[in-house]
Design a protein around this nucleic acid. Structure first.
Lengths: 127, 127
DNA sequence: CTGCATCCGGGCGGATACTG
DNA sequence: CAGTATCCGCCCGGATGCAG
């Protein structure tokens, strides 16, 4: 899906088939897996070490913490710094690109908060 | 995850366990399934009939078109109008709530478009 | 402390066939 | 035209065990 933004105009979808390469769908799918948003939000506050994240995000498995961080890293949103201390320690922080994502993400978060009651009502009505 | 927004401050995550009820994660997970964004974008332009969508969104299965529309409907983002003509015809359109989502969604879409090259570069580098 | 390897259940989403 | 029903493969994500 190709996207054209001019002024307040909305993204302009193409019949698709190209939709796989749509950067908007792409970023949405990445952000939406179970722990990504939470990790981005945490790392938006300050850098964290691995086990610090593991404790801060109650309920996450080590496997998914590693996987999610690796994905964020390979997308250029998070960077990893290894300290060769003993015991070793690794620090994760948002890259400038990651920081730049916080603003539009906050806009969407704001919508979710402002309208959660309406969504909840709609669900109850059509349950 | 509870969320607190004051001014430019970012969503404020709580250790989680509550994260399941976080409205932000909730909306992100809904928006991010395969066809939702594309359908919202299309319906943001004008109302569509069922088969019109089926043809416009090349590659979608009838099953997923129905499922996605039903979910959007039960979330209060889309409304369904049935015309008892023969053959019958059904029209789908965004609700006011759905329309209100377009703006923050466009913000995120804009980010995705503006930074897609950086993300692509990062992926190539760490492939 | 910071991971990787393996196994496994559940849900997303495609294909196909059938209906009012 | 606008769906429903069924089957099925795949990948997300949890649990557990092992390693540098």
């Amino acid at each position: 899906m190709r996207v054209v933004l001019d002024g307040d105009r909305l993204p302009d979808p193409v019949p698709a088939g190209e939709y796989e390469t749509c950067p908007v769908t792409d970023v949405l799918r990445r952000l939406s897996d179970k722990w990504t948003l939470l990790l981005i939000t945490l790392l938006g506050r300050r850098p964290y070490r691995f086990n610090e994240l593991n404790r801060a995000v109650e309920g996450i498995s080590q496997r998914m913490l590693t996987r999610t961080l690796r994905t964020l890293e390979s997308d250029g949103l998070v960077e990893r710094e290894v300290f060769g201390t003993s015991p070793p320690s690794v620090e994760y922080r948002l890259t400038p690109l990651g920081v730049s994502l916080l603003e539009p993400l906050s806009a969407l978060a704001g919508w979710a908060v402002d309208h959660q009651a309406e969504v909840a009502d709609a669900r109850r009505r059509l349950a």
